[in-house]
Design a binder for these strands. Structure first.
Lengths: 244, 244
DNA sequence: GAGTGGTCTAGACCACTGT
DNA sequence: CAGTGGTCTAGACCACTCT
């Protein structure tokens, strides 16, 4: 999507503080789940008022970069937290409830990136990628088949992992094992027809309509780190999107 | 969707001010596009500091209830503004560009609400509704067929309008003619198979996969005012969703 | 009790708009 | 020019957590 607009020449103080703090987050100075220094410490260190630091951190909290607790402190957001678990999973049962998906790995291999991957993941030609194929089981039934592509460079050794060792949720793994924190994602949805392989995996007839979810996941500074394509049987589920 | 949680017993001042202002917005005290009184006026009237009013209005701006301009003032948000035009339309061309849809009315009739409509629109049994059917033309080709359902009570006389008199965009009409401002919407997406009628309208074969977008549009206080169901040919377009 | 973030105030200065 | 919203400061009080 058309993103990223030119920055104004002069930035407010709080925005500059925010930039500095986001840079320090990106550098890994504080790991996911760890506490940041307090507002007053930052205020003193940067020689600005506490209110200015507050505004900077409030924006980081609004962007889900950190979470704040009164009386406890400010912590780097983490996908390992229960609250953020499946934060990016938008399939709901028709009755509106949301039950969390299980994963069943089909394959996990290392490959050379195709042209599409190099473009989506901002890779050089010939770069290595790990490609994971898996089924997603919701409420006991296979509801989606998913292809996940990540650069080997950032996730060294992932391509050599055995399927049984891969967890249900990948983003916590990205965080803890590779220090890659997924911040936001963009999804492109289409209706497509099931091919023979998909139809068999999902237990539907060839040509059945499937919801394709094409996701690019990004870390700090909008750098893409994962490309994922799911094809979902939406007979009993829907993808939820809130507009405002 | 599971929405609306219990309010805390004691609400901060700024939140109370926000509630009061939203109530006054809802009452129609200021029409879309019109200016609100200034921060300092509200501060004096409610006997709170200007900073507290600022925080209340900032939240209303974040919710797209109002728009603010430095030097000019605060204005009630309106779908008639260019910026908000097609704000809720999420279909993009495959190349990422977004061109705006034209509408071709198929029919516009008054009916008795079915059980589904009474439930979706919070109506009494036997209530009258206006049902509009139309095609959406994007880039010269028919890309979607759409059914729109609104309560006659709120949109009196809409059901008697001739198709030629209905504009491309309905939300500006809702605003100017009926004083109904759409604030937010929820969409549920599925992949479905085209039936004979849809296939003919969209120029695809029967059974082709279509993206169904099922939207409930709401005004202030999450009151539903429109139910809309679109079935889209996504061969050359995708539905965009940003996750954070 | 010391330390955290959340609320609220009061006042200053600024950029920008309309006249 | 007066009036608007945007930024920044400094300080007070609060609810809450940890030890």
């Amino acid at each position: 999507m058309p993103r990223g607009s030119a920055r104004p020449v002069v930035r407010p103080l709080f925005a500059q503080i925010e930039d500095l703090l986001v840079d320090r987050l990106r550098s890994g100075e504080w790991k996911p789940g760890e506490p940041l220094p307090s507002e007053s410490e930052f205020a003193e260190a940067y020689r600005v008022s506490q209110g200015t630091v507050r505004k900077a951190i409030a924006r980081m909290a609004a962007d889900n970069l950190v979470v704040r607790f009164r009386g406890r402190g400010t912590f780097v957001a983490s996908h390992t937290n229960e609250r953020e678990h499946s934060h990016f999973f938008h399939l709901h049962r028709d009755d509106g409830t949301k039950d969390f998906p299980q994963s069943r790995i089909i394959s996990c291999r290392r490959r050379k990136a195709g042209l599409d991957m190099t473009r989506r993941l901002h890779l050089d030609a010939g770069a290595d990628v790990t490609v994971i194929e898996r089924l997603r089981v919701i409420g006991g039934a296979v509801r989606a088949i998913e292809t996940i592509m990540v650069p080997e460079e950032r996730f060294r050794g992932l391509g050599a992992m055995r399927g049984e060792d891969l967890p249900n949720e990948l983003y916590p793994l990205y965080e803890t094992r590779y220090g890659v924190r997924v911040i936001r994602a963009e999804e492109r949805l289409k209706a497509v027809a099931a091919d023979a392989r998909e139809a068999e995996a999902l237990g539907v007839t060839v040509g059945s309509p499937l919801l394709e979810i094409d996701r690019t996941a990004m870390t700090y500074a909008d750098v893409p780190v994962e490309w994922r394509r799911s094809r979902c049987n939406t007979e009993k589920h829907f993808y939820f999107s809130a507009l405002r």
